[in-house]
Design a protein around this nucleic acid. Structure first.
Lengths: 177, 177
DNA sequence: CGACACATGTAACACGTTACATGATTTG
DNA sequence: CAAATCATGTAACGTGTTACATGTGTCG
């Protein structure tokens, strides 16, 4: 089994561990839990559900009185979920860091104004940071959403620190223009 | 044009801006620049090159004396690259943070020992951190690789801080077992 | 000669994304 | 009644991943 790009798969599985749900509801619950940080397209839910069913991790129930199809997690699904929660996210199976790649390559390509790239990125990152703060102040987020927001905050802070670090290194190395 | 999952595309484009290269060389250079942090499968290079050529961003040159095919960046490719370097990576078009999703959902699913999930993750993250330190000490990384390593370090540090934060919040909320 | 790096590619498949089609229900 | 929300799905396409096939050159 692959270990990459399975957040949605596992996320839906986790939601179904709470109770059987139908597709539309899953999207709502997912967005509630993560605070619409990474909005989930409804279509994606259905395709993912189909794949989960194909793999025997969920089972579609009979049609509701209203025509709604409730999905339930299976034993195999529960095992998969336990596995997911029990296994840490390794540094190696994370998606490539686009920003890191961008700067790493920027310094190797002649004619690229790296300092300017860094500055523009920092402006953007700081804006995101402010949006985040505003978001956090504006509502009464649930525990899970609150944790997600904090994760974003810590990550953006680290990015700002790294950008500063890059600037320092670059000026020290002496790479003007 | 999508803005997600294009690191490899743009990365190769950036390498070709330095000088025309053939596929195998691109993999080597990519791994050198990023320090094999996210090793690149050779096959991926060729498929990506084919797509880049399809989109008119690179052009395949004549076969070498040795049968090697050198690819060169086109004007359109150069424009695309300028665009990439000039546009910051937005917080919204980053891939979903699997760890954040995992913990966010873990706290909503009954029967999950969240504290234990956090602890296991921290152990793993700290191990990655040590590997990183060892790696950094062991060699004489180039500027670009060094920056990538630093990015990883800052990110892992942020993750550790966040995990601590989660633990604090969770014990404060009082969610034992 | 055997193993290994160099070099190029293809095929099958994974997940993720967007756009579209369709209809029922609710609400202003 | 019109618009929005609820609800389910499909189709086409994108990048990324892995495994496989194929051949050359080099070095011990």
């Amino acid at each position: 089994m692959h270990t990459q790009y399975m957040s949605i798969r596992h996320g839906l599985l986790a939601l179904l561990e709470r109770e059987p749900m139908y597709g539309y509801q899953l999207r709502t619950e997912f967005d509630t839990a993560t605070g619409s940080t990474w909005p989930l397209n409804v279509g994606q839910v259905y395709t993912t559900l189909a794949r989960l069913e194909r793999d025997g991790l969920v089972a579609a129930g009979e049609q509701d009185d209203d025509g709604k199809v409730r999905y339930a997690i299976t034993d195999a699904g529960r095992a998969e979920l336990r596995e997911w929660f029990g296994t840490p996210v390794e540094a190696t199976d994370r998606p490539r860091d686009e920003l890191a790649i961008k700067l790493a390559l920027a310094v190797t390509v002649p004619g690229v104004d790296v300092a300017s790239v860094v500055q523009r990125q920092r402006a953007s990152t700081m804006t995101s940071m402010q949006d985040l703060t505003r978001l956090k102040r504006s509502g009464d987020p649930s525990l899970s959403w609150s944790l997600v927001l904090d994760a974003m905050r810590f990550q953006l802070e680290a990015e700002l620190r790294w950008l500063d670090h890059c600037e320092t290194v670059l000026t020290r190395t002496g790479a003007p223009r």
